[in-house]
Design a protein around this nucleic acid. Sequence first.
DNA 1: ACCTCCCGCCATGCT
DNA 2: AGCATGGCGGGAGGT
Length: 866
Amino acid sequence: MENEKENLFFEPHKRGLVKTPLKESTAANIVLAEIQPDFGPLTTPTKPKEISQGEPWTPTANLKMLISAVSPEIRYRDQKRGLFDNGNGLPEARDCLHEHLSGDEYEKSQPSRKEKSLGLLCHKFLARYPNYPNPAVNNDICLDEVAEELNVERRRIYDIVNVLESLHMVSRLAKNRYTWHGRHNLNQTLGTLKSVGEENKYAEQIMMIKKKEYEQEFDFSKSYRIEDPIIKSNTGQNGHPDMCFVELPGVEFRAASVNSRKDKSLRVMSQKFVMLFLVSTPQIVSLEVAAKILIGEDHVEDLDKSKFKTKIRRLYDIANVLSSLDLIKKVHVTEERGRKPAFKWTGPEISPNPSGLGPVLPFAPSDLEGRRSSKENCAKNLFSARGRPNFTRHPSLIKLVKSIESDRRKINSAPTSPIKTNKAESSQNSVPFPSKMAQLAAICKMQLEEQSSEPRKKVKVQLARSGHCKPVAPLDTPANAELEMTAPSLIQPLGVVPLIPSPLPSAVPVILPQAPSGPSYAIYLQPAQAQTMTPPQGLSPTVCPTPSSNATRSKGSTDTTTENAANDAPKSSASARPGSLLPGLERQGTKNRDREPAGERGSKRASMLEDNGSKRKFKEDLKGLENVSTTLFPSGYLIPLTQCSTLGAESILSSKESSGTLSPNHRIYSSPIAGVIPVTSSELTAVNFPSFHVTPLKLMVSPTSVAAVPVGNSSALTSSHPVPVQNPSSAVVNFTLQHLGLISPGMQVSASPGPGTVPVSPRIEAVSVTPENAGTQQGRATKYDVSVLGQNQTNGQSVAVTGAQQPVPVTPKGSQLVAESFFRTPGGPTKPKGSSCVDFDGANNTSIGTLFVPQRKLEVSTEDVH
DNA sequence: ACCTCCCGCCATGCT
DNA sequence: AGCATGGCGGGAGGT
């Protein structure tokens, strides 16, 4: 470890130092940093950082800039930093900074807390390391050193590191040491978190909370119950709060000591918090909701204010770090009552599963993997099946649902996308996916993600690799696509989903009734989902609730010890999976609970939508959810990535014998990713964290290619989508729509043309487009729901869901504003949120029905927001 | 007055 | 015992 320092060239620090000065203050800096990373060690020395700050050649950079521009705070920070940085070139700078800096700067730096803010500190911290460090190099981080350099207490560093660790951007090596992974794994991690979040049904939970709040307004008692059950279920399954920490491949903590810590709460909180963003459609999460959910999971019981407050404090801490990472941005959700602090996800959109990750789970260790794989599978299957709606439900219903979903997505996406758009990633952003769509899209997304992982990455990668590999671009397009298409099975199995060949444990193949071709149609649902396949009681037929039981198993283990769990996970995973599923079901029993921390407060909200009917619906829905949930939530999943290393892959292969037997290495090469990425397996191995390398997935696949991929599976799709250029997401949407019959084959929705909204089918457009639409949309949703789901009534309960409806950006934010503005309507903006009906996403269809209902009432959302 | 959240006490757990 | 981690919440800066 000592070496870490030695690593100078890699040294993040140094780089950081250099960069730091540049600084993020200008958003650009970050970008630079990112870029640099690729070069990694090599570059480090050189680094131009200072200079360049500016340019964002990367979308990300743009975002950053925008963000910084938008939020005064950030600017402030940046400025300060800039000052600092300038002052500091070096780590110690801080002192220097103050001194060096001019009075203004000095002042800023000194006094205000802001200077000391965690966010700023985090920026500084991040500035020292490249976003994409060269794996080959050691990127060790010595906490003490960092603390000194940054002139902060160690305690603060822990806060930062813990959050970063939750994202697998760093991993602990030993006592004071952490290894910097940067963003290589980020997408993967996010994908995993999303998957977990879906499994945990956070979306549903969010809805519930909102409902509850909203209901509370109406009726206290009822609301409580409703919520509780859900929440509890989550917790309840395992019996304890799910504190599980999601581990990613490669990230696993090496240092024995490290693992031991029981707590990880901060880490866990961070992950969960992130999951909330990933799962919720609007991708806006209010602190209240987040706190409630986190509390709920942890301890349903304690709902004290104090606890709530504490959670919120922690969330602020986490949020600051995430903000520094540009993953979220602070916004305010305005509601009737007032505005609530909330955060909006500004990070890359992620597909639930990191297919690209392949590296990650060869084994399919835990549920996650299974899930992922399942998801992927689903997507594949769907595509293959493509021709038609696989779902059991009547096609008509399905269509409706899908259409709705698509609309919602679009709507949702629209807002978001624009924002994101800035980045290359935007492409992904454009479409949030609903469950089914999501699944379908999942593959695409994954790829996209990879892409999205950032254009910069690509660039970087290319740059970096250029030497190694060929230019990415060429690869991406045709080559990659082809690869994927041709040998998807091989690749996937290897990398991501071994399951496919032998479904099993990880994924449960669900056969859709209609699905003619078993396999084609068969959807591998996550175990949980599979279980639940039965529609929740009242819920709409359309979707299946999918509970994810799988996780549970892991959790239990995790609870005890993360370490153990981690270790076990892989082992057990295989075996466990099956068992886990079942068990999960068993657990359902305990669900009930009443309580809600926040719920109590709920009374505040004056308005309530109320409607007994609506409430009832909700309840029903909730029940459905509950049922599901019980099964579902595994609250914590551990993903053992141990396998990260090539070895893992190999083992996996061997064990599974994925259809294609490829040596891990081969896989790598063969995989599209590999194509893109210059890194050879050998390299990976060589490096400490091989997995990461892979992970990054830098698939540079062009959108087109992406689209192609899915298509590959299903010829129909391809045929259907002529559109080459569209974003994959759009392609998917189109595809879906077409299938559904919503749109004529000829029609296609344009992928998000711009960052902005994407025009969808006529219907969709109508919905999405209009601002006010919220109402309109809602109305629509309702209609659909009704028609689709016979059961659901229209009540609108609004679940408000997601809240955020109105995320009004407090500060004028550039991009966001625009996007948001779309959504927002004067009155109740929110639609977007409603649309959010999280459930759709991915996880399950089942929820869809439920979710929809809530959506209707956007207004409600407001309420719930607190 | 409320929102943020810094600061650092002190518990926890490993060495 | 000593040290590393981090939970936690008082209380202050900001707005």
